[in-house]
Design a protein around this nucleic acid. Structure first.
Lengths: 217, 217
DNA sequence: TGTACATCAGTGAACGCGCGTTCACTGATGTAC
DNA sequence: TGTACATCAGTGAACGCGCGTTCACTGATGTAC
């Protein structure tokens, strides 16, 4: 039926685009996101710099695409976990950690230092909210014992979400703690701020996770 | 007595150096740390690019100096708080938050995305450990109720510290949670990952802090 | 199956730019007698 | 107080570099008859 026929040329184009992105990721791994350079990638691929403009209209488009892919890879990871039946808090947490450790610079591209002026395109924001939806779903399924924290009193109903997903305050409450604490461990760990302190960040991560999923924050 | 006499020239030098650094901070605020440029700073100050080499031997030295100053400003802030008698966990926590919000890019220069290859000079590491010492001192003064978390079992005695400061495992335990959770809130908040979620990050910060200082993690 | 034409990947030269950095210099400021 | 010398801030030209990006082109690949 409506099979998207793939000509050899299309396949080739996709392949080259993918290789360009891979080289870009290598540059990021070596010298950070600001080091991405079309000319350097081209040289590394044995092409002239101008050739890459067949595949990306500008350096900015390439970088934006990398950011998009980074967000997309996290949402895909989460969905795979959920499809496996592990879409609960511990499942998502470990998926998040594995995803972050697997490629720290990809993690930082999403959750690291923001470039002051830069605002990603709208569809990236959509992916970000999809990630949050998945976390919120997991939090909604959690057994809730009354949280005794002054914080929740100030949480307004979270009426957003594309599908009119109405979130209970307690659910958002748990999700926010979940997100904040796990990213606290990850950003400190990946930033090297725990090195030489004589403990294993994985243990800290696990401890935070158990506090969150056993008895609310 | 041994007063360090300050010649007009020395005063002038310090003044110009300070202005160079201020311009650099402005550049960072506008376009991130990788945008620091000696030529641009010189132009902005009405000088030739070469003139700045009277004050910094290279661009790298300038950036390293900014990093050093960022660390130093936090340790100074903490010390001022301690000297005021507020060197307890809530005091340090609020000082940390104010310091971070006061200049987010300065915060990110210390706790944001690390540049893959880069390793700061040794004296910056010393300042970093001084910061940790102050936090550890505050944690040691905390009333400890038995922590019921599997994490602490794997904490080795923290025998480091220049002055042979021996830290009890429970103290390190609290300090690590303190550090991790507060930075979790701050990095998410400053990264804009809480915007549009219908709650005030200050409340979350406060809630985390109270959980930490009222009854251990 | 063969020929005529269209598509399109990649080239190489060129553009202007800003960067970090060096160097020989000028001219003002400070110091020693 | 005045002169001779040393210090040192700042200049301007120059270096080589890599960057993003454009443009007219060649040559291979695919398509239509």
């Amino acid at each position: 039926m409506g099979e998207a026929t793939t000509t050899p040329r299309e396949r080739y184009r996709r392949q080259v685009r993918a290789e360009i992105k891979e080289r870009a990721w290598e540059q990021i791994a070596v010298a950070g996101a600001s080091a991405v350079s079309l000319n350097a990638i081209a040289k590394h691929m044995g092409l002239s710099g101008a050739a890459l403009y067949r595949y990306f209209t500008s350096r900015d488009e390439l970088v934006t695409e990398l950011v998009r892919d980074a967000y997309q890879s996290l949402v895909s990871t989460f969905r795979a976990v959920a499809a496996r039946g592990d879409g609960n808090l511990p499942g998502l947490a470990h998926a998040l950690r594995d995803w972050a450790l697997d490629d720290p610079q990809r993690y930082f591209l999403v959750y690291g230092t923001p470039v002051p002026g830069y605002h990603g395109p709208a569809d990236v924001a959509v992916i970000a909210s999809e990630i949050m939806e998945i976390v919120l779903d997991a939090c909604a399924a959690l057994p809730v014992d009354a949280p005794s924290i002054p914080f929740e009193a100030n949480v307004e109903a979270h009426a957003k979400g594309a599908a009119g997903h109405l979130t209970a305050p307690e659910t958002l409450h748990v999700a926010v703690f979940f997100w904040s604490r796990l990213h606290g461990v990850l950003s400190m760990e990946l930033g090297g701020h725990f090195t030489g302190m004589g403990f294993d960040p994985a243990m800290l991560f696990q401890a935070e996770l158990e506090l969150l999923s056993n008895r609310g924050p």
